[in-house]
């Protein structure tokens, strides 16, 4: 078996509309080991979401390769991609994560039902996961009855319940206050480490980076810098170096 769960080689995405050519992602090679949680940071428009979209097979790359557990996924049709997403990927979006007419527990179970692995014992796991995320009171609440932060925690539970190899999150804490955001990322990080999954989280908030194992900074579609000791980020706080890493948003 490959020593990486996720491995990309020279992954690129170019958007062409009329005369305009945008190199959203250019020649990105990154590796994520089992149990490794990576933060993807960088200014707006640097290609972070585009990167996640390609890793989740939501977007086709222009060139380059992606390997999951050593298996390339290049020639998948629409149906195979959907199957791949529901089996191998857990995704937390920025918002609109939940099905509005399903309760918290039903939203998490949805992933089990999609994978046809729903059973009472699996449902028990879904409930335990929600409890662990501090949602005891919200198990049977509809999304409209929950705060944004509670909804995001349900989404995180949903992205983990079906035992995916790769867990992706696009600014999952954008709508949370700092305190809440830290708690959520902490639990998220624990769940990725415990089960030896590969996790990638896009964030604008560098304070979230102390819960990850590695920070990758993207600028203009390429990897600009890799910080292997994210704890150092706190040291950088307040310096111009810190500001360059991040974006004006939230800070």
């Amino acid at each position: 078996m490959d020593r990486y769960i996720l491995n990309t080689i020279d992954l690129s995405k170019t958007y062409r509309s009329n005369e305009l050519v945008v190199h959203a992602v250019s020649k990105v090679s990154l590796q994520v080991k089992p149990g490794e949680f990576i933060a993807l940071v960088g200014p707006s428009g640097s290609g972070k979401t585009t990167m996640l979209a390609m890793l989740a097979t939501l977007l086709e790359s222009t060139s380059g390769h992606i390997y999951i557990d050593g298996e390339p996924f290049d020639d998948m049709n629409q149906k195979q991609r959907a199957k791949f997403r529901r089996e191998k990927i857990g995704f937390t979006f920025q918002d609109n994560n939940l099905v509005p007419y399903l309760t918290a527990i039903e939203n998490v179970e949805l992933m089990l039902r999609l994978n046809k692995i729903y059973s009472t014992s699996e449902a028990k796991r879904a409930k335990d996961l929600l409890l662990r995320l501090g949602l005891d009171e919200q198990i049977n609440s509809l999304p409209s009855q929950m705060s944004k932060g509670q909804q995001q925690r349900v989404a995180i539970a949903r992205s983990l319940i079906h035992d995916p190899r790769v867990v992706l999150a696009d600014e999952p804490t954008a709508s949370l206050d700092t305190q809440r955001a830290k708690q959520v990322v902490q639990i998220f990080s624990d769940l990725i480490h415990e089960e030896k999954r590969a996790g990638i989280m896009v964030t604008h908030d560098l304070r979230m980076c102390k819960y990850v194992d590695k920070v990758i900074q993207m600028v203009d579609g390429s990897i600009n810098r890799i910080i292997d000791e994210p704890a150092d980020i706190d040291v950088l706080a307040g310096t111009s170096e810190f500001d360059k890493l991040s974006t004006p948003a939230l800070l």
Binding site: L58, A82, R85, E87, F93, P100
Partner: peptide
């Protein structure tokens, strides 16, 4: 948006 999300988490078009 909700339908897009369902498809993104792997709901087949048929469903």
């Amino acid at each position: 948006p909700q339908i897009g999300m369902l498809k993104a988490i792997g709901a087949p078009n048929r469903l």
